[in-house]
Nucleic acid binder design. Structure first.
Lengths: 224, 224
DNA sequence: GTATCTGTCGATACACTGTATCAGTTGCAG
DNA sequence: CTGCAACTGATACAGTGTATCGACAGATAC
């Protein structure tokens, strides 16, 4: 016994919570993308063994769900009238995806029923009071679908641009030759003229133009 | 020399090609989902060592890109007039996603510039001849975005239903208690009435309702 | 016909993943 | 003070994508 040393000052085992875990995971994902979120890395960021996390989450997918729901805390659409509310919803989701690009990879990929997600759904539904339910339900679904797809593509494009040099149109240098060759085959004549002569909208304009289409269509139904 | 055996009948080394690899990968993904697509499994399906594939693809992501482009071979929108073409595009993508559910996980997640994808783009652009380019470009983008999001959510729902028992509304049994408790807190009053009293559209109706909104919005701009 | 070169192939290895298992320690109930 | 139950975290496992590199095939040069 005299030889046996006292137990080393056990590091004050870090107090854990679902929230702390999720925050750490989000920090990692913001910094280095979704691939950087592994249970081991999250645990390491919290000075904890990997298996410790399983007391708080059952599986990695659950952690991802929690991350998505956490971000939904900042998605609180507001405004007067159905159109303003839906517009606000769309912009809020897009804004969140700009700050957390990994959100684009997760949106729509799993059923979302967390409290924050429900709360933003509640805000939308409440803000659209007065609209006929038979119109409201598919309208919300349509806006959600559009936003998911639009944000996904926008973030994808942003990543591609970033990957091929910092410059915004460096992208054209990377894929330009390939596309030029593809167009030179003559198999895509219409596409070629569209690309050459069509408008070059930036991300903001593209997103809003599409959103306007959706809202206009909904508006036509509402005022029938 | 007499002791040295002849070389064993070397198995007629399977002729390989990008196409065969992609087909094998698609077969795996169709059967057991995207997670079942690993380079080792694809190689095994072709009776080949894993490293052999690297002569044909540089990375796994490239393989996934090739899979997406291969499916686009069947997406050839057609019809008379811009509306029919866009409708056909949307339905074709959705149809493809029904046969290859993994497509929902990949759509919009990477830049798509493969020959088949370009060809379906060409078909859309060609079918919409006559529409002003400043309207056409964002219109195609909007429909694409909507379809990506809508298909994603539809497939996600389908998987969730399948995971919680085969029954279509068994889902309500699985999540019902949780939702009932959530609604019982009184924090989501509007959402609760929407869920209870709102319409219960099936997947087809939901998809088409949203698509109609988008197309109506585009139509308003075109005929302005 | 022999020797050298070239390129392809695939066994092995590496770093990493999510998660099951379970011995051992801890703190608590009696 | 003892016995128990819960929790922790080291270890292990099966799997991943891909780098490396020895060995062997076919082509080329003499």
């Amino acid at each position: 016994m005299w030889e046996r040393p006292e137990p080393p000052d056990r590091p004050v085992l870090a107090p854990l919570s679902r929230e702390r875990i999720v925050r750490a995971a989000i920090r990692l994902a913001d910094a280095d993308g979704l691939d950087a979120v592994s249970l081991r890395k999250v645990a390491a960021a919290l000075d904890v063994g990997p298996m410790r996390l399983y007391g708080y989450i059952a599986t990695k997918e659950e952690l991802l769900d929690l991350m998505v729901d956490a971000v939904h805390a900042e998605i609180r659409p507001a405004g007067d009238g159905w159109r303003a509310v839906l517009y606000s919803l769309a912009e809020a989701i897009r804004h969140a995806a700009h700050q957390h690009e990994w959100l684009a990879d997760l949106l729509g990929g799993r059923p979302q029923l967390g409290p924050n997600t429900l709360a933003s759904g509640e805000a939308v539904a409440a803000g659209m009071a007065g609209v006929d339910l038979d119109t409201l339900v598919p309208a919300i679904a349509a806006v959600n679908a559009y936003v998911i797809g639009a944000v996904r593509r926008e973030i994808t494009e942003r990543r591609a641009e970033r990957a091929s040099g910092m410059d915004q149109r460096q992208w054209q240098v990377a894929f330009g030759p390939y596309l030029r060759r593809a167009f030179a085959t003559g198999r895509f004549p219409t596409l070629a003229t569209v690309v050459h002569e069509g408008p070059h909208l930036d991300a903001d304009d593209t997103f809003r133009a599409g959103l306007d289409y959706v809202l206009d269509g909904i508006g036509a139904r509402i005022s029938h």
